[in-house]
Amino acid sequence: MNGIGDEPKDFIKLSEEKLSADAVSALVISPCCGAVSLFIGTTRNNFDGRRVKQLEYEAYAPMVEVEIKKICTNIRLKWPSVKHIAIHHRLGTVPISEASVIVAISSPHRAESLDAVQYCINTLKATVPIWKKEVYEEEYSWKENKECFWAKTVK
């Protein structure tokens, strides 16, 4: 049962500011839920043995919103007991070890929110128009998620 006055909400945000796991998880807290599941994607300092200085993200912002709303709609179809969904993605320069994405989902019991978080981040990586540039000491490379079906990177 949904708690009165706590209708399901989707919180979607792109930000150049540092992301806060506390702030994102606070958005989805609900008195009728016993679970908040959280995923934090952080930036790594190495790729294929090369030192990564920083990552730079860019986005087709208005379409990001459209694609993330589709993910939220599908989460609610697959797991109807899910209460609130919050997805924050950082853009611009993200220093090593800081969060680039945070997903928080609440549900009455843990199984639904845990599954929904996994689905959410996997689908985000496959369909949402955001790009990551890895900056090394003297060059850079545009990354391609393996989940993206039109990526044809030979690995």
Partner: peptide
């Protein structure tokens, strides 16, 4: 929209984005 035979009907002001493989997250 994939590159292929799909017919597009465009109007002045439409926005077309070129989307390389995405890498969010």
């Amino acid at each position: 929209v994939l590159l292929g035979d799909q017919l597009l009907v465009l109007h002045t002001g439409d926005e077309i984005a070129i989307i390389p493989p995405v890498s969010g997250g």
